[in-house]
Design a protein around this nucleic acid. Structure first.
Lengths: 349, 349
DNA sequence: ATGAAAGCGCTAACAA
DNA sequence: TTGTTAGCGCTTTCAT
């Protein structure tokens, strides 16, 4: 009933007035610090509740340098990140942190990161920039002086975060395709220097060598994570696809795959008769297509949880400065779901 | 070079020390307030830049009651909201607001909203709760005393926000289906009392009456926005579908539709021969299926932009209190994309 | 046009 | 165990 109207908000002072205890005591009671008699604590909490007290986080942060808030920076048009973010948020919530989701476009991505990391609003950040790893980017991140966890990225000078095991995923898919008789395999992905691409390409090459295909031509098309790039990649390899020199396509990303699929269909290339298809899967899409598409499934929620765990761990350590730089990345496994999009390779014309 | 190491951050005081001007002058210069000579302003800005000054938003907010930050509350597993949020964020960024995306689960949704609206961190909020509209919910929102914009929801006592024109969308789709000869049309949607459902059901009924079908049986299955509900809705109507009493299904949501589709396939019901299909579309999914699904397409980005515009407008008004309560909702149109999933109705067995 | 000083709500250091 | 006080970084009177 003493509930203040509107924004003017209930502050600690109101609780002081209500209970008669001092500012310090009330603050300590509210924060569960020791040196407060249980009775007093109970009394204060009661008053807080009945007055509808809500701490002013800004003020609190100003003193304690704790914001109770972390950031998640990524290109949110990639649906995979929205899932990862969900996982992170779930974990953070139960640790009493809130999370700000910040969308960063692919272009001008360094300055956007600088912007968000400079806002003095976050205790730490999880991030997965789509731009090329560079010394400049690393410097921006380091000089922000904020605990950070990289997701699916590695950068010079930055400690390891959480990464998906693209190497094994792609190796498994490659073995599977080669077992089916495929030799000409086109791999389509995003920016050539980000971790998912580098690791995947490495697996692609290693498996080809291991299986004795290093004499044959390799087909690698890694540039952007968007639908258009999928379309373009097919276009520029269309001759080899039609001629049966490429008999399988492996897409490193869901959105790219849509472009691939559309362009194949537009050109009357059938699956799996003409070409076998595998893609990383981000949603429900692939299982519903005709034919259902063989997919590499990543535990995206888990990735988010792991990233958040690690970040919260970092926040705990506090003044450990340089030690953490040695930390080894958490690696998360995927699994291959075989569906009808892969069949025996056709013979080249 | 005087750049402070680490968090300890550059503050206004550092600029004072650097330039020799007083605290007040520096603050005014930085905020572009009048009463500062242009030369001084330039000098201060220069110093700020060279020192790498970044304002402490918490401190600023504490004095000015302006956070420069708004919230977007919705169930983020619904991919439609991630698109809407993107639209909102784009607009807000260019208005110099940041946005916190806050996921709220369907259950216990009122307390989550209370939680977020109580955090003194937001100038305003956009929200689209999946729980039933209720007086209690309205009260929570009102008593938070925060400017707010509802998206696709109406609540007792709250001013109109931004809504998609579900009525016209569904009316158009219904007319289309009826023109094709369909009589038994099943409509599947989310919670019966949220606006998308109520408006759609109303259109469903109005069109049926208008077209002289009010003598025939209506099929309405509206409960949850998730895949499982789509599955269940088909299961419980399977007899009527198989017997040809239901010859068309209209899904109000993308995720629900996936459940519908899976269950139809599992039971060997073909499309469009046995049943015609229409769904609201949230991504790329529907156009790629076999057959491609006729879809109602919503301009989701635009919805986000509109919501953000309106919220920023509200923030400008400030102390207008009760006036805004009369505001009429912004209504956004959809369009129907006809694809191959709809054909002439089969005759009942 | 500029400076000085008060104070937003809170926590942490120091007294008692 | 509790109270008192200083001050986080900033904006905003009120003087000058």
């Amino acid at each position: 009933m003493a509930k203040r109207t509107h924004k003017g908000s209930v502050t600690i002072k109101d609780i002081v007035a209500e209970t008669g205890y001092s500012l310090g005591t009330v603050s300590r009671a509210l924060n569960g610090k020791e040196g407060v008699r249980p009775g007093v604590k109970k009394r204060v909490e009661e008053a807080a509740r009945s007055l509808g007290y809500r701490p002013n986080l800004g003020a609190r942060a100003m003193r304690s340098k704790n914001f109770g808030n972390v950031a998640f920076l990524a290109n949110m048009s990639n649906i995979a990140f929205t899932r990862i973010a969900q996982g992170a948020q779930g974990y953070l919530k139960q640790r009493n942190y809130s999370m700000s989701l910040c969308h960063i476009d692919d272009e001008d991505c360094i300055s956007q990161i600088a912007h968000y990391m400079g806002k003095q609003q976050f205790d730490g950040v999880m991030l997965s920039p789509n731009c090329e790893p560079s010394r400049e980017l690393s410097d921006v991140i380091i000089s922000a002086g904020l605990p950070h966890v990289l997701i699916n990225r590695v950068m010079p000078g930055l400690s390891g975060g959480v990464i998906i095991d693209y190497y094994s995923s792609v190796a498994e898919a490659m073995d599977y395709l080669i077992d089916l008789g495929h030799r000409g395999i086109l791999i389509v992905g995003g920016s050539a220097n980000i971790l998912p691409t580098t690791r995947s390409v490495q697996a692609y090459r290693d498996v080809r060598r291991k299986r004795g295909l290093d004499g044959t031509r390799e087909y690698i098309a890694c540039r952007h994570i968007d639908e258009r790039w999928g379309t373009e990649a097919v276009q520029s390899n269309l001759d080899d696809i039609k001629a049966g020199r490429i008999t399988a396509i492996l897409s490193l990303n869901n959105t790219i795959f849509i472009g691939v699929l559309k362009e194949l269909r537009r050109n009357g290339v059938t699956c799996p008769a003409d070409v076998s298809l595998v893609s990383f899967e981000d949603g429900q899409l692939l299982s519903l297509l005709e034919p259902p598409i063989t997919a590499i499934v990543r535990p995206l929620l888990e990735v988010g949880v792991r990233a958040a765990e690690r970040l919260v761990g970092l926040l705990g350590e506090k003044e450990n400065d340089e030690d953490a730089a040695e930390a080894v990345p958490v690696e998360v496994r995927t699994h291959l779901v075989k569906r009808e999009s892969c069949g025996p390779a056709r013979r080249p014309d």
